[in-house]
């Protein structure tokens, strides 16, 4: 498998087979682990970092979960490929900085990936479609247990799994669900959700865009506490709260259709019209318009547009994806033209 092979197939987590995929796009769980007797990345010198990278690579190669995986050294791949992998959520932005001695392992279906020498020696990640916290946990738990037999994870009887940053100490667990909360934003209930979330040991942020802005009403909710509660308790807490938010969004969507159907219908079809006709379109406008269409599709106001097509367009219209599809670097303005072309093509327009 090569990086370019990823371009020609759909990520499994993009499909709409996952539970509640009308509102929950994907569920992601990651585990932070470090090797015993190895300095953390921020403290290790070049040789020590290389040693860690090789040891972890060797350990993961033994795993049955990564039989046909792609093993990458970040410094060997182009800047564009790095941006491409970040857009696919296979690695973090931090991982693309200070690139010496960093590694990435990607399993064939793009459900599993491992960052090596990010902030911690190992960051396992499992991503699945829809709202599926326990299912995602059971996969990553299995990988962690198996790889733990090949690699000596640093663990203390007091503090649990030891990590470079104390915010991850203990379970090293962070689970997050990406949600599309258009109705809660439209009805101005989203601030209440934000307030409630922060009181419950969870955090919520906009998925696209910087800072507090939530472009296209896509949000990511994750646990903040990693120590003092078992993995099951942390995940159970997250699951219950997100289930409530999803129920609230669904209820509000139904209310919107019942009370403001004409207005909603107008907005959705205007957005659809723009996407089908635009000749120049920025990334942020695309996200906003696709958000409306996603809502319309779920409410049955837009025939023939499936959620997984919208998810796919969201992914492939990002800057690095556009450049990979066109097999060359493209300047921002020209990208906006190529993006508009691609969106029209995907929506069956000329």
């Amino acid at each position: 498998m090569k990086i370019n092979d990823l371009l020609n197939k759909k990520s499994e987590w993009l499909n709409r087979e996952g539970p509640k995929s009308n509102i929950a796009i994907s569920t992601r769980v990651r585990l932070a682990r470090n090797l015993k007797k190895h300095l953390y990345f921020n403290r290790a010198d070049r040789d020590q970092r290389e040693e860690t990278l090789n040891e972890v690579m060797q350990g993961i190669k033994k795993s049955k979960f990564f039989k046909n995986a792609l093993f990458l050294k970040i410094k060997d791949i182009s800047e564009l490929d790095r941006a491409f992998l970040i857009e696919r959520h296979l690695m973090s932005k931090e991982h693309a900085m200070d690139i010496d001695s960093k590694g990435l392992v990607i399993e064939e279906k793009e459900i599993l990936s491992v960052m090596i020498n990010e902030e911690d020696h190992i960051r396992f990640q499992v991503m699945q479609s829809g709202f599926n916290i326990m299912g995602t946990w059971s996969v990553i738990d299995g990988i962690d247990t198996e790889v733990g037999q090949y690699l000596p994870f640093d663990y203390s009887n007091i503090f649990g799994y030891l990590t470079s940053c104390p915010t991850n100490t203990g379970t090293g667990l962070r689970a997050s669900v990406m949600l599309h909360l258009s109705a809660l934003v439209m009805t101005e209930q989203i601030d209440k959700v934000f307030q409630a979330i922060s009181k419950l040991g969870l955090t919520m942020r906009g998925f696209y865009g910087e800072g507090t802005e939530a472009l296209g009403n896509f949000f990511q909710i994750s646990n903040q506490v990693a120590l003092g509660h078992s993995e099951m308790d942390i995940l159970d807490n997250l699951e219950r709260i997100i289930a409530k938010i999803i129920a609230r969004e669904e209820e509000t969507r139904n209310n919107l259709v019942a009370k403001r159907k004409r207005e909603i219908n107008d907005r959705i079809h205007r957005s659809f019209g723009t996407l089908k006709s635009a000749r120049i379109i920025t990334s942020s406008e695309t996200i906003k318009l696709l958000s409306d269409i996603r809502l319309g599709s779920d409410l049955g106001l837009l025939e023939g547009i499936e959620t997984d097509l919208i998810n796919e367009i969201l992914l492939v219209t990002q800057p690095a994806h556009l450049q990979k599809i066109n097999s060359k670097k493209i300047a921002p303005f020209e990208r906006d033209i190529k993006r508009a072309d691609l969106v029209r093509k995907k929506l069956g327009e000329e």
């Binding site: 000596p152 003092g228 078992s230």
Partner: peptide, 25 residues
Amino acid sequence: QRNLSELLRKIHGADRHVGKMPFAG
């Protein structure tokens, strides 16, 4: 350990791990 325990209690509300442990643990 002493300083960290205090810090961990402020971050997580606890300074003791409960949950999964590796095979060797």
